[in-house]
Write a protein that binds this DNA or RNA. Structure first.
Lengths: 128, 128
DNA sequence: TCGCGGTAGCGAAACCTTTCGCTATATCTT
DNA sequence: AAGATATAGCGAAAGGTTTCGCTACCGCGA
């Protein structure tokens, strides 16, 4: 059995994580409301998935609060980083840059973000 | 049963796609050699996976060639685009730019690539 | 206290992915 | 042409994810 270190979230798990990231710490009922809206699944399903995710350490819960309160155990940023690494590794064969170029080509960004990206590019160039 | 339009490749399917992208059109034996190297799985498994992938239209095959020749039915670019969209949608909540910034921060790139990225940024700025 | 609505847990069904054994067929080698 | 070797296919086991039914529990108002 998996015990330590959060494994990759599966499809539904990711859907739930997204909800928890959005809502912040919440009781099952609230999480279920959203999930049900999106997928029409049963309340039991939500409870079960959360318990599975608890075992995988994808979420934590406060059992002292009466309706238990769940919160994400990994940040959106960390999950994103993991996915990104996998994407780069598995599909782009290790070249982050080619991914960046592709993402840029379809991105809409603010002036501030564009400048930020320029700054990063400058830094990269200096270091070589 | 899924019939039309390639669904998201699963883990092993992606591993196989990667091999086929690398090798180009190949007979099972060659594909298997690589997969086996990575995972130690049986020849039958490779054949089966390829047949599943054929049904899902992730690969095509030339049956006229004597050892049948398989090739990817989707390009690396298209697969990447799909994953990227999903990543942006599901985790970054629609903001491609924040993904780009994160990818950039860990990327190693050549001068040419950096310039290319700058060009894209300039274009983006012009269009607003 | 009893009953009731909301909450939690668990086992197993249903479903999908991955693996392989067994069989059949084609191709080579002598 | 027989036997050996390589290729293809298929069904089903093994393993993982997702779903839910059923049971138990808890807190509260009658």
């Amino acid at each position: 059995m998996r015990e330590l270190g959060s494994p990759q979230p599966t499809a539904v798990e990711l859907e739930i994580l997204r909800i928890v990231w959005d809502l912040g710490p919440s009781p099952v009922r609230d999480i279920h409301a959203r999930l049900n809206e999106a997928k029409g699944t049963n309340y039991s399903t939500t409870v079960k998935m959360l318990s599975v995710m608890l075992a995988k350490k994808l979420v934590k819960r406060d059992e002292k609060a009466s309706p238990h309160v769940y919160r994400a155990a990994i940040t959106r940023e960390r999950a994103a980083k993991t996915f990104l690494n996998e994407l780069i590794e598995k599909v782009y064969d290790g070249s982050a840059m080619s991914l960046v170029l592709q993402a840029l080509s379809k991105s809409k960004a603010t002036k501030a973000e564009i400048d930020e990206a320029r700054k990063l590019l400058d830094e990269m160039e200096e270091k070589g």
